[in-house]
Each structure stands twice: as C-alpha cells, then as structure tokens.
Design a protein around this nucleic acid. Sequence first.
DNA 1: ACTCCAAATTGCTATGCAAC
DNA 2: GTTGCATAGCAATTTGGAGT
Length: 285
Amino acid sequence: MEFNFQQDPEQTTEIPLPFNVDGTKCKVFFDLETTGLGRNNDIIQIAAKTNSNSFNRYVIPRVDIQIEASKITGITYSHGTNKMYVRGEIVEPVSLHKALLDFIHFLKEQNQPIILGHNICNFDIPIIVSKLKECNLFSTFCETVKGFLDTMKVARKCIPKNDAENLKQQTLVKQFVGENYSANNGIEDVDSLKTLYDRTFTSLVKSDDVFSVLYHNCMESYSNLLKNKIVSRPVCMQLAKDGISLKHLKLASVRDVNGLKFVLQDQKIPRKSVKSIQEYFQNEE
DNA sequence: ACTCCAAATTGCTATGCAAC
DNA sequence: GTTGCATAGCAATTTGGAGT
C-alpha cells in the first residue's frame, strides 16, 4: 500500500514533513562483518546491542570471504562443508533472509530506534540497505527504524584535530575509554562502541546528526543535478539526510514556490540553490 | 583488495588598487 | 582610461583515511 514509497522514494506523491527525531530515545548500536570491502560483498555477521539486549547472527555468504576480511574478522566459511568458524570455534550461520528478518524483529522490540555505528554512512548502511531491498524487506525496515547516526561523523565534527591520533573506532576507544579491545569481532565492536558513546559522545550528539534511512535513495535521486553541477553536494546531503528526494522538491516546485518554503524556513538549502533547482525543472519540460 | 567522503591543495577568475 | 600586479574567492583536483 502507501508504504511502498519507502522502497522507492521517487514513487511518493507526498512531500514529507520535516524530518524529526523527537521522541526517539532508544539506540541500537550495530556492526556488520562482510566478505570484503566492496559494496557488493556479502554480510557474514550482524551484531547489535541496546541498553538491555544483544543481537548476533552469523550469515551464510554466497561468495568467498576475502583473505584480508578473514584475517580481520576471524571468520571462515567453507561452501563444501557448509561450516562456519570464528577463530576456530564452530558457529551456526543462517540465511541472509532469516538474519535480516531476525534483525528487524529485534529492532521492532525497540520503539522506533535510531541505529548507530562507526563509519556506517558509507559502509554498513549502503550494504544492509541493498541486502534488504534484495529480500524485499526494505520498506519494513524503514517503518521500524527512525534513522541512523554515524559516530565517525560526530567524532570528526566534535573532536578537535589534535585531541585524537586518528578517527578509527579502536583508537577512539583506547583514548577516551582507556580500553584496549580486540577490534573486529562484531559483538566486541558494538560493545566498545556503546561504551565509547555513553562515556563521551552522548553530550555531543544533536538530533541534526541523525540521518533518514532513505538518505542514499535520496542522494541517488540527485545524481543528475550533481553531475551537471546544478546544485552542490553539501546541499543535496542536507536534504537527503532528512529524506527529501528530488521528486519531493519537484512536487513542491510544481505546486508553487511556497512548496519549497518549509525547506527554506529550516534553512536547509540556500535561496540560490532553490532558484537553480527550479530552473532545472523548467528546462526539463 | 574497493569505495566513498572530506580535507588539503592547486588552479583559475575577478576584483581592486596604483601608476602611468 | 588603460595597464599591470596582487590578492580574495571560488572551482577543480588530489590525497588521506575509514570500514571488512
């Protein structure tokens, strides 16, 4: 029904309300382990943690785990024997579909949570979104989750240049929590990230740091504008962050200039950009 | 190994001012 | 009014670093 637009924001006929994260209290820290660094690699582990609960699923990959990834995650899998090991210990992996369903179920137990992770904006989120779409679970996921927050973006914004050696999760944990942890087991990763967040990030985070799960869909909708340099990347990001796609702007523009007012009022895009976007729509016809 | 973002650097244009 | 230079501002490009 109506919620189909979540699968493809270009299908919507409604201009979304300004993105609003009020009332979101629960946080789910999460981390993916994958077969490699590419965006098309398979998921081999989903780990997550809230204040009171933990989640962990190992996932059967369809492609081989790259050596570099195995070294880091300690996970190996043989298609021949169908067996998965984590540092020598045998584990029971499930199918991608089941792992995603279970994860959504875990998320549903929270009240419209935001999901948090380190560098997830450009790694974990694009990967899990593409897998969710593949399994036709993306719209359900969108209904379940309020948005996501990338702790690396917060760290870059809030931590002065010389206060941290670098922005790796492991370094930040060592520096601000004082713990050395064996990075790269999914569970330990979410554990240490939660500790880091609770100790030092809580007070730094603003609701402005939360992104819509439709962020990448929206950015994709702006690809033409970006390619033709009609509008700047930061402006697109600002809009996409709140789940506003090109289609939404077009609908607004078609109705009248006031349709874009809510965007302007919130100062999400400068007037100069609004003008160039409107000209773009006119030239399209 | 792959991909992406953002900071840093380089390159270019335009503007302002001084001298003629 | 014209020329030349210097600097500010913007655009394009390169580099570095983060995730498995």
